[in-house]
Design a protein around this nucleic acid. Structure first.
Lengths: 224, 224
DNA sequence: CAGGAAATTGACCACTTTTTGACTTTTTGA
DNA sequence: TCAAAAAGTCAAAAAGTGGTCAATTTCCTG
């Protein structure tokens, strides 16, 4: 069974981004937007908690203490700035680590993985998915069409994985950029166009089929 | 003693193919074609079960639950297609993993090996292991290729042991550092690169073969 | 404590991936 | 039909990654 991660934050944008990304990484994500929801969410017994300290009307540290009374899993703070004093306060409240905003999704998942690893219980993340004749190995980040390997680069794999997981949905380039890079897209740099091209070539090469459809004026979608 | 694998499927073609392949890989294979045979086969105490869910007249999931009442070994589902709901149902029934058809034999054996290995790790660790012609003596910390000693240094041995124990899994340099040094890696110092080089040289020198594979942008893995 | 092996570091090079920007083609709607 | 907007293409620059080597530091052992 996948690790369960509880995200506590009041910014919808961020929680959505985080939960979709964590799901992409094979975790099960839960979201709580306030103290009340958080406490009731503890019933799912999360394996790790991401907690924003700077929420209006809620004292993150107090919330952390309350959580600690009920669970022992790692608690990682999300915070804008961090002073030495913040660190001490946080640790006293029962936190395990800090992630300072802004952070990349890569960094976040690395830290999450590190803590889960340290916590060491049997890891059972789903590894292999298959779709339309493509066999996707999430652990090795490889995709095969039968015996033929796709040989995607890391970025290419990220994009394919994202589109595949959200098959049939249309995403414009900005959205894809945000989802995969974990950053806000500033204008259209054209990176996505180029990556989509490379991906399409490799897919066509190996399978002879079209997987990524262009919806004119809207974006791209993975055909299912 | 060889690992015992029970194959549960009603397609004779497939079971024959699988059992002959698994035998070639050094496993002992048993076949059951229906629920009744499966239950009675459990008396051989298989180390792993391959279970086709989509058999006519038999509900694979029910069968899985019945098996689970008797044994704790890993159960891998063979299935044509897989939806999110299938996954949930399967896990609730006590399954450990899915292999979606069509699959390559290579993939199948890799997954089988992975599960057996995971199971093995929870048992006691053997003193002497052999892999691809290498004979590893964990007590004396020596590795021989036939009569030829490898003469690895301590660190080198640690790294090889770690990679070997987790064969086929990919580890980036940071992970290897954490696993072998037991410390958090602060940035990439390049130590691993250098050790990998030394190890590769010694392996090549003694065996003429390649054991450690580089997965670009991902890390290293011990080829098995 | 000296001498040698082992471990580590940093610099360098070759190679791959990622990004960029100029340019072409396609699509759309006035 | 034509012009503007959107999408696609290409090659080259920039950034990142891994392999190698030599130099330095650390660790043993006699």
């Amino acid at each position: 069974m996948a690790y369960k991660i509880l995200i506590v934050d009041d910014e919808k944008m961020l929680t959505e981004l985080l939960s979709s990304h964590l799901q992409k990484c094979g975790y099960e994500a839960f979201v709580a937007e306030n103290a009340e929801q958080t406490i009731s969410m503890l019933n799912v017994y999360p394996d790790l908690i991401l907690l924003d300290i700077n929420m209006p009307e809620i004292d993150g540290l107090e919330l952390c203490k309350m959580i600690r009374q009920n669970v022992v899993c790692p608690i990682l703070f999300l915070t804008a700035r961090i002073t030495e004093q913040d660190k001490i306060n946080g640790l006293q409240a029962g936190g395990d680590d800090y992630i300072t905003k802004p952070f990349s999704l890569k960094e976040l998942t690395a830290r999450v993985a590190a803590h889960l690893r340290r916590d060491e219980r049997s890891k059972c993340t789903p590894k292999i998915v298959s779709s339309q004749g493509l066999i996707v190995n999430l652990a090795e980040r490889t995709i095969f069409y039968g015996e033929k390997p796709l040989n995607l680069s890391n970025r290419e794999f990220d994009i394919v994985e994202f589109l595949m997981r959200n098959a049939n949905q249309i995403f414009d380039r900005e959205r894809i950029y945000e989802a995969v890079w974990g950053l806000n897209a500033e204008g259209d740099s054209g990176v996505i166009k180029e990556h989509i091209r490379k991906i399409r070539n490799k897919l066509k090469e190996a399978t002879g089929r079209e997987y990524i459809e262009t919806v004119w004026g809207m974006g791209y979608r993975w055909k299912k």
